[in-house]
């Protein structure tokens, strides 16, 4: 082996060791900022302003964000701001009275004067129209959540990127939902 070659070899191994060492150091530093648990994306319903971007900006079509219903928060009103068009003619399930563009909310009579509202998730597109209505003049029991059976858990959530109120946050996979409710009036 010529002199040049052996010198080259020496330089190469020195560089290799220093690269390995810096990679190990980087790993060590990062370990200090790492946790065992996985992270998933979720919507903080208290920050959400129902802007409607969840429906349009998810990488999935339709979006992995759906409306969920916190039943313990619901007032079971006949006149539901989340179900009925603002200018509805009558309080029934007719198309002209429904707010939901895909008719994804099922309205069921329980007892006078209470109605149960249930989201049909296969139809829901996460447009937040009902959320806006329910939050504005109801209890806010309808709200958006990322559904983890659908979400691909992108490295950077495309909705988080455009959310105007930074409501899309990372939560630990052990507690993957931020569902409203458990609410007790003062």
């Amino acid at each position: 082996m010529s002199k040049i070659q052996s010198r080259r070899k020496f330089i190469r191994s020195i560089t290799r060791y220093s690269l390995g060492f810096s990679l190990a150091a980087l790993t060590g530093f990062s370990l200090g900022k790492a946790t065992k648990s996985e992270w998933v994306w979720q919507i903080d319903p208290f920050k959400c302003t129902s802007c409607g971007r969840c429906a349009t900006d998810c990488v999935l079509n339709p979006s992995a964000v759906k409306c969920v219903h916190a039943y313990d928060l619901c007032g079971y009103c006949d006149l539901c701001g989340g179900y009925l068009e603002p200018g509805h003619i009558s309080r029934d399930t007719a198309a002209e009275n429904q707010l939901c563009p895909t008719a994804a909310i099922e309205r069921r009579f329980i007892e006078a004067p209470y109605y149960e509202y249930k989201i049909k998730e296969d139809l829901c597109i996460g447009c937040a129209k009902c959320v806006e209505g329910c939050t504005a003049f109801g209890n806010g029991s309808l709200h958006l959540q990322v559904r983890h059976n659908l979400c691909t858990n992108c490295n950077e959530c495309a909705i988080a990127r455009v959310c105007p109120s930074d409501a899309v946050i990372r939560v630990k996979a052990e507690v993957p939902y931020l569902i409203k409710g458990g609410f007790t009036p003062e």
Binding site: S50, L73, G75, I110, E121, T135, A136
Partner: peptide, 28 residues
Amino acid sequence: SASAQQQRFPMPEFQTGYELPDTDRPEP
């Protein structure tokens, strides 16, 4: 929107034995 949680309409006390459904939480 009023984002704060407000129980404007308290939950009714059902007479017919209606049970509150659970909100579905599919796991990751």
